[in-house]
Write a protein that binds this DNA or RNA. Structure first.
Lengths: 136, 136
DNA sequence: ATAACTGCAAACGGTTTGCAAGTCT
DNA sequence: AGACTTGCAAACCGTTTGCAGTTAT
């Protein structure tokens, strides 16, 4: 869906590298940018059949902490998205569920929000829904 | 938190007006812009003590259909937000949970997304997190 | 009159947790 | 050795659903 370089899938500094975690990381590498937990679980079990669901949840949480992935709500289905380095937003296809990243960003400026609303913006999240090139 | 006029809390055309639904609508009117389902439930039960949780869920769903409210994920806590008419986005205070609306919007243009990504944008959602005027 | 609505309680689905056994460093 | 990790199963939590009784129109 995109071929810009991936943000490395990194575990936190002191996390151990186990076969199970390796299987999860490799499974993420082989999935499209947006995936559900069950998709991930099924794929990782190809390499690691005894893998437990709880382990996938625990690994996902580690990856979320390092910023490697981000949870996203796509039409009520909890979904995870690989995050490239740097500021970006997501283009979510409402037909096939594919997620693409875009560096285009034009969120309201912090200064303007401060002036008009007295609001100190710290982060924003822009998710754009529509139909991707392949589905159109 | 904001004093621009509220989008009327309207039920769908053929929905009946019952004491329970009236209690829920009034409770929403008395809550801040962003509220959790339990907050709403507790408030509505002041007027309607026998109110069931399921009824609140069902009423919320009706309001969501008319665009009167919108679900929002604030820090893992499922939250609902009153929606004014017209295009707007939400300023979510990460300290007190208050939600304010802003008409400021500068999401990437559909044309640009089409050109650069072959993506046909249909909708977008911009949520801005930070600290509101009162908390700052 | 009748279709819509309600409360209840059970069912549900996704996520988290406690624990004993096993493993990475 | 010792802290970390795992799989399992149970617990948990928010949400949905089936149903029999009630109510708005």
């Amino acid at each position: 869906m995109t071929n810009s370089p991936q943000h490395a899938l990194t575990l936190p500094p002191n996390a151990r590298v186990t076969p199970q975690r390796r299987a999860v990381l490799e499974a993420i590498g082989s999935l499209r940018d947006g995936f559900t937990l069950v998709e991930l679980y099924d794929r990782a079990r190809v390499a690691e059949p005894a893998l437990g669901l709880a382990t996938v949840y625990r690994t996902i949480e580690l990856l979320r902490r390092t910023g490697s992935i981000r949870p996203l709500e796509n039409d009520g289905r909890p979904t995870y998205v690989r995050c490239h380095a740097g500021h970006h937003h997501h283009l979510v296809c409402t037909r096939c569920g594919a997620v693409e990243e875009t560096e285009l960003c034009a969120a309201p400026s912090a200064a303007e929000l401060r002036r008009k609303h007295g609001f100190r913006a710290e982060a924003h999240q822009v998710d754009i829904f529509g139909v991707c090139g392949l589905c159109a």
